[in-house]
Amino acid sequence: MKILIMLFFLALSNYSFSQQVADTTYHPKIYDPLYETGKGPVVFIDEGHHNFHTKNGRYKAFANLLERDGYKVKAYQGNFDKQLLSEGNILVISNALNEINVNNWDLPNPSAFSESEIEVVTEWVRSGGSLFLIADHMPMAGAASDLALEFGFEFTNGFVFDTINRGPAYFNLKEKTLTKSVITKGRSSEESVAQIVTFTGQAFKIPDDATPVLTFDKKFVNMLPNKAWVFDDTTTRFNVEGWSQGAFKNYGKGRVVVFGEAAMFSAQLAGENKRKMGMNNEVAPENYQLLLNIIHWLDNVME
């Protein structure tokens, strides 16, 4: 059994991190575009912190979807700066890394952001900015944990797995693992979502003033290895029933959305067989609508 479990993890690792390219053919239907093309607010996608997902890279489908909804999507280069951030309305940070972990996914996993940058982002949100923080499993969770904690979210820098059904994790309204909220309802019945799928990632605790989107049930365990994707009998593990993989809250005059899995908002082709991973996967047809709903809430279109 132990050998089978290890083989599963190795297969999942290869699936997740084999050569990945953006699926440029992915163009899902937008029922009611919010803005005319190029007339919407500016959405920054962070590219200044060794990000695994970037505007024209693994998050090209993410950026394309928002641009089709009318937003002006721009890459954010360099350190977070008060003046530069003031030129945008929504900041997306996906899978940032500290420089020491770019090619080495062992512990330690220090912050991707300096203390002064964290202060700048926190004050920008408090003053009315909107932050979409996405941090996957180790080492990305560790790299974003200090920033997340400023808003009350506690990351654990691990990997979360379904102990019964191997593969993607399913969250739905029927089992109450997907929470009915302004974000899952959208602006109309066409925009409502009933089931969301994620691809590994991390589990985290949310503050009392946050609303969960994705909540783990008793099937899920969190594993905290010393090296990414390497698990053995000494690896710390514990049940994460009631923990979250997505949540949102108001913060001062601004808004924050936090998710613990990044591929769910991408559309990628992985490996030699060009396997679909992310919003373009047939098991995740509603993920793109959740992304649009999140951006609309961060844009203060939905209360």
Results as ranks from 00 to 15, higher is better:
V257E: 10
L178F: 12
L173C: 09
F8H: 08
T184W: 06
N89P: 10
D136P: 02
N64F: 10
N222L: 06
R68L: 13
I118L: 06
F199Y: 12
F265E: 01
Y251K: 04
K276H: 11
I45S: 00
G167A: 11
G128V: 10
G152T: 14
W229D: 01
E99S: 12
A135S: 14
Y15L: 09
N101V: 09
W124N: 06
I45F: 02
T54E: 10
A262T: 13
N280Y: 06
L7M: 05
A96C: 13
R275A: 14
A143S: 12
V221R: 06
E175D: 15
H137K: 04
I3K: 13
Q20G: 07
N104L: 08
L91P: 12
S192R: 07
L178A: 08
L290S: 06
L290F: 05
Q202E: 15
H27N: 02
V257G: 05
G57S: 13
F248S: 00
E190L: 08
K29T: 05
V125T: 11
A144H: 05
S181M: 10
P285D: 14
Q289N: 04
D217P: 03
V43I: 11
N273Y: 14
A96W: 09
K72F: 15
F132R: 10
L97W: 07
M6I: 09
K218E: 10
K227T: 07
G57H: 09
A143K: 04
F155K: 03
G201A: 00
G260S: 05
S111R: 03
E241L: 06
E303Q: 11
K276S: 12
Q77N: 15
G242K: 02
D217V: 07
F216G: 00
T177Y: 02
Y71F: 15
A270M: 12
A141P: 00
D146W: 05
V193E: 01
N172Q: 14
W243I: 00
E67D: 07
E191W: 08
W124F: 13
T200L: 05
F159L: 05
N287I: 03
L12D: 10
V121A: 08
W124R: 07
D46T: 02
K74A: 14
T235P: 00
A270I: 15
T198K: 01
V283C: 08
T163Y: 11
K174C: 08
D136R: 04
Q20R: 11
G152Q: 09
F159C: 02
D232M: 04
A263Q: 05
V43A: 01
T179P: 01
